[in-house]
Design a protein around this nucleic acid. Structure first.
Lengths: 140, 140
DNA sequence: TATATTCTCTCTAGTCACTAGAGGTTCAAG
DNA sequence: CTTGAACCTCTAGTGACTAGAGAGAATATA
């Protein structure tokens, strides 16, 4: 059994974040010592590793909660897990595309500006004042 | 002079967001009617357009505040505006790279899973349980 | 003119996923 | 035993909004 600090070091999840995950039900309430300190075992280590990994891949807390519940029913069909992962992939791809449009505009703006002119003739500021100069549609 | 609702329609910025921008000082407090309703002119329309455009390009509220202050001093050098825009570009490019790493992993995971097996043998869930299967480093 | 509808107001709290810090207790090392 | 580090709960903050309640003002319609 290890302490919350040890669990934090093993998983890379911060102590307050572990407490937060317990509060919102992503992990079960920990067993406590006589001094009311949390203690964790191997299965909690695995659960937190799963959560950390999924968070790293951009899954929302809600989606992770669903995946955890699915994992607790090994006889079920994995269509839902698959669907959650595919949605995450699609969201990620959409976000990439959106950011690439922003990049295009920011490149255009910064390439025109040497940073030594006066504000009154600044391409950065005049571009922000005039969306008509944009070559790609970038509204989010 | 137009109402907050009209300004919202002209700029695409929602009514509560316009009030929020006034509260945080991004726009000046509006003149009011006898009935205490806000009224706006062309210069406020321009200011809000600037803010909307910059938000769309991913600039933070803080950065936008700085850009607005710079815009009020046309005799100054535009190095700072340039620097803010270049930082925004670099942040955008870093975020794209990070998301592309996530995409790689999510593609690998979803391509292995047909969504018709059992949870007990689900590639999505087993991948999330085991970071060792990842081919790229994706921690955020 | 009266009424109904729409728009506006302020205020408070919530969203999401944490994060920070205060004040107190417990544990481990010297 | 003493001290410092780690632990606890609780509250509130982060960033950029967003939602909704309850009331007032403005506009449209009969």
């Amino acid at each position: 059994m290890f302490s919350i600090g040890t669990l934090s070091k093993k998983t890379g999840v911060k102590v307050p974040t572990i407490r937060y995950y317990e509060q919102i039900g992503l992990i079960d309430p920990a067993v406590r010592t006589e001094g009311n300190q949390r203690r964790y075992g191997e299965s909690e280590l695995e659960r937190l590793g799963f959560i950390r990994h999924a968070r790293d891949l951009g899954f929302s807390i809600e989606a992770i909660g669903t995946l955890i519940k699915l994992n607790q029913h090994p006889d079920k069909i994995c269509a839902e897990a698959n669907s959650i992962a595919r949605k995450q992939l699609a969201d990620t791809q959409a976000k990439i595309a959106s950011l690439q449009r922003l990049e295009t505009e920011l490149l255009r703006i910064t390439n025109h500006c040497q940073g030594d002119g006066q504000i009154g003739h600044c391409y950065v500021l005049s571009s922000l004042s005039d969306h008509g100069k944009c070559v790609s549609e970038h509204s989010q």
